[in-house]
């Protein structure tokens, strides 16, 4: 009615979830499980680092990273930790149950920029699932990249995710994997300590390295220092941030971090672009 205002053609609401079914479910570790769900549409794809909003009937939505192989168009994989009402309800779903999906949302890991570089991934706790799609991509296009390193810190040996896959990847000569735990057990043969202490034990060439980090912010802050100590430059460091994401499309405002909407501008950020806010408390 009002002249001049160009409103787009009637669009469907970005808030409407698509209903899909669970095809498979497996336990990964205490309180952590993986759901394989059918894609909401043919040709549905995502980029490593992105996330979906998963809805449980009547309970609510939670932002969950995509943790499957981006080349697998047939199934969507989410590894989820049961920490609240929605993830708890997701934990109670079984094969064949329905759930709502919106997505994929957000930015992704810089796989194109990383081509020709050494790629060092540093994951902590539930920060490994958002990096797993990167691992699949790197291994599928192995010759496009230099050395590949995964440093992974978990709370205890029982909390180590994807143990079978890690063992499988360790067999490869072209993939350096180090897993450390905060609290060892007498039967744990691997390293005990903070993930940053694994740096001296892996080989990469800092001048041509891209660092990808996902985990608690304090872990990432200490990891950034390790990278910088080795003179990997800030524009080659990428981190995935966690915030309270509710709408995933920049409307609700909850996930703001400095001038960024983590749901749209993130969750993956290049460190030099957010540094002045990353180091401000409560930004």
């Amino acid at each position: 009615m009002t002249a001049n205002l160009q409103v787009h053609e009637q669009c469907s609401s970005p808030m409407l979830p698509a209903v899909v079914h669970i095809r498979d479910r497996r336990s990964e570790a205490p309180g952590v499980f993986t759901l394989a769900v059918e894609p909401p549409s043919a040709g549905w794809t995502f980029r490593p680092g992105q996330f979906n909003m998963l809805y449980v009937f009547g309970v609510g939505e939670a932002a969950i990273s995509l943790s499957g192989d981006p080349a697998d168009r047939g199934t969507i994989i989410h590894t989820i930790r049961n920490v609240g009402s929605v993830t708890g309800a997701l934990d109670r779903l079984r094969v064949g149950d329905a759930l709502g999906v919106r997505g994929p949302f957000g930015s992704s890991w810089p796989l194109d920029e990383a081509r020709g570089h050494d790629v060092v991934m540093v994951a902590g706790g539930i920060g490994l699932p958002p990096l797993r799609p990167v691992i699949y991509h790197l291994l599928r296009h192995r010759s496009d990249f230099g050395r590949i390193v995964l440093l992974y810190g978990a709370r205890t040996p029982a909390d180590v995710l994807y143990g079978d896959e890690l063992d499988q990847w360790r067999q490869r000569a072209d993939f350096q994997i180090q897993v450390t735990v905060d609290h060892g057990s007498p039967s744990w043969r691997g390293p005990v300590g903070l993930v940053t202490e694994l740096f001296p034990r892996c080989g990469f060439e800092p001048s041509r390295t891209v660092g990808l980090m996902c985990g608690p912010e304090v872990m990432m802050r200490f990891t950034i220092r390790e990278f910088l100590k080795r003179r990997v430059t800030e524009d080659r460091l990428f981190l995935s941030l966690e915030r309270n994401m509710q709408c995933a499309v920049g409307f609700c405002g909850h996930c703001q971090f400095g001038p960024n909407f983590v749901c749209m501008d993130g969750p993956v950020f290049r460190y030099d672009r957010i540094r002045s806010f990353f180091n401000v408390r409560e930004a």
Partner: peptide, 15 residues
């Protein structure tokens, strides 16, 4: 928004 998302209720009320 960002060339991607429109709140359909807002859009309808606005026009």
């Amino acid at each position: 928004r960002a060339g991607q998302f429109t709140d359909p209720h807002y859009a309808k009320a606005r026009e």
